[in-house]
Design a protein around this nucleic acid. Structure first.
Lengths: 227, 227
DNA sequence: GTAAGAATGTCAAGTATTTTATATTTGAGG
DNA sequence: CCTCAAATATAAAATACTTGACATTCTTAC
């Protein structure tokens, strides 16, 4: 599953220069979670800005019927919890650790002081948040606009960009289905279709992309380039 | 249509105190657009932060087949164009004026200086952007999770909160359909169903909600509270 | 008041997607 | 190398949604 991590966006920590990054990290409270551990639940009210030092965090919600919808996956360098701070809203999603995960948590007071004292921090936060907003809007636009098999192709292309292996993506069909809000059956049908077009090859827990450039061209022809 | 404006979120200008607001507005270039005039198109690259002084702006995209998808409507006090500044991305949507619309446009240099000099401005921008991100994520979550008639009810409830009239919402069924990405026929069916449940009454270019509290209770029972 | 345009109501056919169920394939561990 | 659990493949019925067409109702302007 490591390949799903980080897809899209810019990690906050990568936007900070070394001294500032050091200052910010040292101001945070250390937290550690084991693989799969719950970090917070939807509705929790405790505010704070969390920075992912190591590992990754999965955000999603479990519906009444036990169905899971995944909203995003963030890897090392990313932050989360801005809404609890700046918008005063409760946690919107369940968050759980993927792999051994280490966080630094900044209190609202500390964040407020950092913003006042360090314009670069405010600027980096704005860049990260804005980029995420843009991605979220594009995602929901795609959700309505694109046929599901094109959307699936776009997801694969996007995961490929942040994958370790440049020629395949490690994900189960059910993971992809959760990410796009489709049923596993429908995702299977989409992937079969893409395989039929020669864009991908299906494996067990893995999608192979032999010719990433060809996939990009195909996506562009279907009005769905990957940012 | 005025009722659709502003629904959700916090206008940036409402988060600033008077002197700061004055300083920011005076730094901007004045722009005026007639009703329906195009402000920018998807793909435009010119960066700038726009503040809506008067009127409103509609964001959306026209598909190849001439179908319109509406992404959002922002009224006076809101800002847009953050992505062109902070994320360096091109305009994602077509924007056009609703009614006689006046803007102030801030250049990237001016915004950068304001962020450095005025922590309150950075803070307000973060609040507004974060809130918008939260709303966008919730919207796309709802899009996948909720049956369309519940989503329609949620939209109506949300519009009701920012409507002039506390007991009705001025919008055509086709506007609601565009907002939720449904066909007019399907939206009609959803509304009929809600009318059957006694939650709303249908009018000509208007939806009546006699008992807003009852609508809220019904929404909560369907796992869809309005923030 | 009436005509014209705008918005809604309704129907039918076609497509997309979900749900449920069962069968098959794959990889990992003993 | 064999078994078991996980993942994928496939099929059928049911539901949701779209498209296109046409009828009806409502509002506004004259």
């Amino acid at each position: 599953m490591a390949d799903l991590i980080d897809f899209g966006g810019w990690p906050l920590l990568s936007l900070l220069d070394a001294p500032l990054k050091e200052k910010i990290l040292s101001a945070g409270r250390r937290l550690a979670f084991a693989d799969g551990a719950l970090i917070h639940s939807r509705g929790d009210a405790s505010p704070g800005l969390s920075l992912i030092i190591e590992g990754a965090v999965r955000f999603g919600l479990i519906g009444e019927a036990g169905d899971y919808i995944e909203m995003s996956l963030l890897g090392a360098g990313h932050c989360f919890g801005e809404a609890t701070l700046f918008a005063g809203l409760p946690r919107a999603y369940d968050a759980s650790a993927i792999g051994e995960t280490h966080l630094r948590e900044l209190s609202p007071q500390i964040v407020a002081r950092l913003i006042d004292d360090e314009p670069d921090f405010a600027h980096a936060l704005l860049r990260a948040t804005t980029r995420r907003l843009y991605d979220a809007l594009e995602f929901s636009h795609d959700l309505r606009r694109l046929p599901s098999y094109v959307h699936a192709a776009k997801l694969i292309a996007s995961m490929l960009k942040s994958a370790g292996d440049p020629n395949s993506v490690a994900a189960r069909q059910s993971d992809l289905a959760d990410t796009l809000g489709l049923s596993r059956v429908q995702m299977g049908a989409c992937l079969k279709r893409l395989e039929g077009e020669g864009l991908i090859r299906l494996g067990y827990g893995r999608i192979h992309v032999d010719d990433a450039a060809r996939l990009s061209v195909w996506l562009a022809a279907h009005d769905a380039t990957v940012a």
